[in-house]
Amino acid sequence: MTDRRDDEAEPERLGRLVLPPDRESVPRARRWFRKFTAHEALACSMDDCLLLISELVTNAIVYGEAEGLWRVRVEWYRVGTSLRVEVHNPGFPARVRLRRPGAGEAHGRGLLIVDQLADEWWSGPSAHGGTVVAFVMHKAFAEQRQAGPGI
């Protein structure tokens, strides 16, 4: 986990998806991410991004908790030449932790995978309430978009 680096660029939201907390939401998140980024010609690995989204949405479903109906929110942004993906759930931010499971353990590798494949990742309180876990892929876009003409 590293500190955020793209603070100097204004985030441009490329897509958002709100999902029920069930297992069909994981492949749905992958399909929609692929569909809504297809025209962007990402310079980073689509397979890596899809794996990271799968891990974070799965974690959001497994660890999210609320008293009533709740949803998992996935948002992706262009920040300069970087891609940032955020996954929000109503769980508690303090429960997010990087584990190093033993060889015999079947679960617990999600954030380890995120830590290895993403250029950055972090977790904390979500602006929507609950928890956000985000990853960043630097140089995901070939060039930074130019700002519009000044007034």
Rank of each mutant, 00 (worst) to 15 (best):
R95L: 12
R95T: 11
R95W: 10
V96G: 02
V96Y: 00
V96Q: 09
V96N: 09
R97L: 11
R97T: 10
R97P: 02
R97K: 15
R97N: 12
L98A: 10
L98H: 13
R99G: 06
R99E: 12
R100F: 13
R100E: 12
R100T: 13
P101S: 12
G102V: 01
G104Q: 07
G104E: 09
G104M: 07
G104P: 02
E105S: 14
A106F: 05
A106M: 06
A106G: 00
A106P: 00
A106L: 09
H107F: 13
H107D: 00
H107L: 08
G108C: 09
R109L: 13
R109S: 08
R109I: 11
G110Q: 03
G110L: 02
G110H: 04
L111W: 09
L112M: 15
L112G: 15
L112S: 15
I113Q: 10
I113N: 09
I113A: 14
I113P: 10
I113G: 07
V114G: 15
V114R: 15
V114W: 14
D115Y: 00
D115A: 08
D115Q: 07
D115P: 05
Q116H: 02
L117P: 12
L117G: 05
L117M: 14
L117D: 08
L117F: 13
A118F: 07
A118N: 04
A118K: 04
A118D: 01
A118T: 01
A118S: 03
A118G: 07
A118M: 02
D119Q: 04
D119P: 01
D119E: 03
D119G: 09
E120G: 07
W122I: 00
W122L: 00
W122M: 01
W122D: 00
W122S: 03
S123W: 14
S123E: 06
S123H: 15
S123F: 13
G124T: 03
G124H: 03
G124R: 02
G124F: 01
G124I: 05
G124N: 06
G124V: 00
P125I: 01
P125Y: 00
P125F: 08
S126Q: 03
S126C: 01
S126I: 01
A127V: 08
A127C: 01
A127N: 05
H128V: 05
H128Y: 14
H128C: 06
H128R: 11
